[in-house]
Each structure stands twice: as C-alpha cells, then as structure tokens.
Design a binder for these strands. Sequence first.
DNA 1: TTGAAAGCGGTACCAC
DNA 2: GTGGTACCGCTTTCAA
Lengths: 338, 338
Amino acid sequence: MKLKEFAKQLGLSPTTVSRALSGYPEVSEKTRKRVAEEAVRLGYRPNINAVRLVTGRAGAIGVVMGRNEFQFSEFMSGMAERLDSEDIDILVSPVADHDMKAELQLYSRLATSGRVDAVIIHSPKPNDERILLLHKLGIPFLVHGRSETNVPHAWLDIDNEGAIRRATSHLLDLGHRRIALINGRDGLTFTLHRDKGYREALEQRGLPFDPRLVTHGQFTDEIGFRSARSFLEQSPRPTAFVAGSMMTALGVYRAVRSVGLVVGKDISVIAHDDVFPYLTADNMVPSLSTSRSPLRAAGARSADLTLQLLTGRPATEIHELWPVELILRESTGPAPEA
Amino acid sequence: MKLKEFAKQLGLSPTTVSRALSGYPEVSEKTRKRVAEEAVRLGYRPNINAVRLVTGRAGAIGVVMGRNEFQFSEFMSGMAERLDSEDIDILVSPVADHDMKAELQLYSRLATSGRVDAVIIHSPKPNDERILLLHKLGIPFLVHGRSETNVPHAWLDIDNEGAIRRATSHLLDLGHRRIALINGRDGLTFTLHRDKGYREALEQRGLPFDPRLVTHGQFTDEIGFRSARSFLEQSPRPTAFVAGSMMTALGVYRAVRSVGLVVGKDISVIAHDDVFPYLTADNMVPSLSTSRSPLRAAGARSADLTLQLLTGRPATEIHELWPVELILRESTGPAPEA
DNA sequence: TTGAAAGCGGTACCAC
DNA sequence: GTGGTACCGCTTTCAA
C-alpha cells in the first residue's frame, strides 16, 4: 500500500495524509485521528527508504563492535530499550580487532553512504584516530569511553580511575601490600585510567609502584589465568588481585585454586563487573567483590545521548561520567599474616 | 558529491557512470576503469537510500536477538565475516525475552517497512508463530535452528540430538548410570532435540528415563549452579552432568566443588561449547569435555545462505544440519565405584 | 486546513 | 557503447 493509494481511499490528498501521520500541527484533529485509524486498519506504512531519501535521515545509529567483545549484547540491549519507542534502527558493523585501517575505512563508508545518522564508538584511545576521522567526516558520534583528543566530541564513560582506586584502597585497608592488577588492553583510555587509579591508591599510602605487578590484555579467562599464575610464582607473591572483568576473574579464581590457595582467605580478588544476566558475581564461590557498573544502562543512556546529539544538542555539552559502585563480597578479606 | 555532478566531471552521462559502477556488461572496459578510479579519487559514493528506493532492496539483513543472549556477538561476528565483501548491513533488533507479542509486531514492522531484505531468527519452537508470520508476510527468512512447522523455510542447525546422544553415550560407556541433563529453555526445538538425544542414549542401553534428572532453563551460571546443587542432593546422586552451555558448566563446577566433590573424578561433566574467544573449555580446571560447534562459523554460513535466499534459491532447498564434535578432556572420567 | 507539484539521488528502459 | 528521461514513494514548499 502506497501513500497515493491510501490517500485516495481516504478521499484525501497525499499531502494531508503525510502530515497527519507525521503529527504536523496544521491538520485538524478529526482528520488526524481518522488517518491514524485507517492506517492501522488498512496496514499502511510509509516506505522507509523513500522517507530516508527525501528527509536525508538514515533512521539508524551505527555501532562498531570489536569481534571479541562479549559485552556487546548487553550494551546493545540497553540501546534497544531506549530506541524501542523511536523509529530508529541499530546497525551493527563488527570489525576485526586491532585492524585500525579496516575500521577507519568502515567509518568512511558509514558516513558517506548515509546508512546511519550517528555512530557510537567503543574503547577509545587517548589519541584516537577514529575520533579525528569522524569529526572530519562531519558525522555525529558518541564515544563510549573517553579520549584526550582536543577534537570536540560527546562521550559517556564510567569512572574507571575512581573505581580501581577505591578497589585498590580497600585492599590496602585490609592490609594487603602486594596487589596485582590484571588490566585491559594496553593503550586504551580505560586501561590507562585504571592504571592511574591503581597507582594513586598506592601513592596515597606512600607505597612504591611495582611494574611487575601489572599486566595488560584482553578480557578473557585465559589471560586472567595466565597472569594470575605468573603473579603467584613471584616471591613474595601478591596477596590480592584486581581483575579487569568477570571473565578475567574466572581465570584468576582458577589460578589461585590451582596452586592450592583459597580466594577470600589467602588471596583477595576484586573484579570489575558490567552486570551480565548470565554470569553473576554473587554466584561465584566465594562470591566475588566487584566494582560494578551496568553496561545495559550505559547502552540505554548512550542511545539517549546520541538522540540528543541528533536533535542538535552540541557535542561539547554531552559529557557524562558515571560513578562506579564497590560491592564487597566474600572474595576480599584481610591480608594473611606475612 | 552526487551522481549528476560526478558524471559531469567525467564528461559522461549519469547512466553510463551508474552502469560502470554497478558492473554492467555493456560499458567498455576502459570507461569502467576510469569511472572506478575517479570515484575513489573524488570520493563519490552512491546515496544508499536513493539506491534502496529505486531498487526496492534494503541492503540489510535483520537479526532479532533475545536480550539475554551472550552468544550473539559471536554469531554476528560470523555474519559480518561473510557480509564484509557485500554491501549489506546487519540490522539488529533486540527484543525482550519471552515477549512473543512484541516480537511478532517487530517482524511485521521490519517486513512492511522495507528496512531489511531478509531476517534471521533464532531459537525457534517446533510450532513457531514467527515462522508462520514471516511466511505470511512474504519476507525471506532463515531459521537458525529448526522447527516443525510445515510452512517451508530455510534453516541451518547443529545436530543437537546427536551431540547430546553421543555425550550421554560416552558417559554411559564410562560406567555412569545416573546422568543429569541441565538443558535449555523449555519448549525450544533445540532443547527438545537435546532431551531426545539424552533419552535415546539411555534407551540404547535399556536404561529407564528419570524425569528428576532433567532441568530446563536459561543458559546462566546461576541455573547451572542451582540445578547441579539440587541434583547433588538426590540420593543416590548423579555421577555425571550434561550441561547446556559454558555458562551453565561454570555453575556446575562450582556446585560440585561446593559439596566437596571433584569434577572429573567424583562427577563427570560434559557441556556444549559454542566456542567463545573469552571463555575456553580447555582452560577450565579441570579442562572441560565438550560437544563443540563454533557459533561464529554458523553465523558466517547463515549470512551466506541468506544471501542465496535473496538471489532466488528456494527456501525448501536450504536445509543444513551440522555435525557436532565431541571433545574429551579432563572433566570426564570413569564412574566412581558405587 | 487542504492540495498541487517539485524534488530527494539514483536506476533502467528505450532510443541512438 | 552511450545518453535522455521516466520513474521509485515520500516530504515539503507554495498557493489556494
């Protein structure tokens, strides 16, 4: 059913029908109501591609996801929550990890092809080429995370620095002195922020920073296991771990057990938790102390902010830093006597 | 840069340029090459929405994802691998779990709005309303999984029945007699197939089926833990578990440990593994025996088959059943003496 | 408050 | 092999 045909059936002009459906003020209430009802009854829906062509809007937000990021479904679910009521799609473009060239090409394509009205990017670096490119391309974008590029950009981030500072401080309060940090991929802003939070906590106590107590890598159980194992071989060994993700924590738990130690007694563990429905810190044994920040909520808010961007709110105004909760469970305890 | 403008710069007509770029045969090789080069140089890209309007193609494949499905990133990465070379997007529509009404509405919208050329649906039921609806709507679709609706439809599935039959048989071979199955959500085809495979293995040995040894639920660590715990309270307790996913297996491991038993010795465990980069069966302690089927590959192939569907291959011809490997590791061992 | 008509940026038919 | 032009289905100015 096309507009013309539909309009004819109603005895109206296409113009009026279009206006009625789009909620223009000049249409009489009676007409609007009739049009709306008939549209449902006769099943008329505007052809989205025609609308897009004529309005120049794509009606979609692009999300570029790294291929190995299990967190994605959660973020996107959040986005969907917010976008459900709008007529806006989520366009997902997975891109191979670590292939910056391919990723940059992707943005050019997305921007110039008019598939999306805006883009959300993840895991930025302090000096991120993608941000420069997107700015140059003139396409609205939101950064999930932060960057230090002086190009103006909208962002939403969690307080990684504060989260890890507090986690580390708490461990220090418990008497731990050798605390290992299993951090994210090197060079990413959130990794740097976490490193910073960790160092700050040490500094506050006048404790020295030991680079041998920090590793960087993807959030996988394997990296968690390997890092923890190699830390545990040190002498003296650390008595506490700060882990970058739930998956990392799984590896850490295993590593601790594999050398005959007990999490929460011999070794304390705090991990960052994005809150996944399928893997719960509370259910781990012992239950896992976490710095906690629901990724789903971040997804919803990111969609919301992107929408604001699209309605003209300046990117420079859109900066949101979310606090992170510290939730203490059984995996943290006083440092064992030396 | 628009076609008209671009064509003028080349001293050609829009028609010729369009043909050259779309690879029509009647354009001379020389012209085609020149046009292609200049397009890159001047940065001309056809406006996708205009193309879509005029061709009637959406240039996108829709994927409807349940909100709590961590497997999704992996499947989509696979899709992207295949779609990278095509000019086809992935449109993701997350939908609340268990909200069939919302989901059906979503399909109607997707189909009638012309946003997507085809849809991929997941986790079908034997008699799935979505399949009926999509068929009625006349939009091409591929089912990831299987259904028993007599509506013709393309599908790609793994041999869940065979996988669980073999897993169970293997445990029986090892002398286990009380084997518990922690299965997926009730009513879904793959869950039924797994139930069936489990029963078949028992039948082959003439062993009775005990409904108290089977649970159904989402693939979460929590369900894995709870199910396993309640199984372990039975007397006599099962000596082996077949778990529906890696997340479930995490819960099972925990449950076993929490009652002072040892996986691989007191209790054998086999889980189904979709192969995630961030959670590896081999890294678990003890390493986890699995029925294994890479979801990423399924995603790539699903995209491929959907493309075939779009080029006219009849849905009734597209049925693919993938075998599942059984990989034995340390979590399975002989049944302990009674 | 309603309608006629000119595009939006391409594709593809039909002529040359 | 190349070009003119009528659409694709809608929105939006302009006029009534």
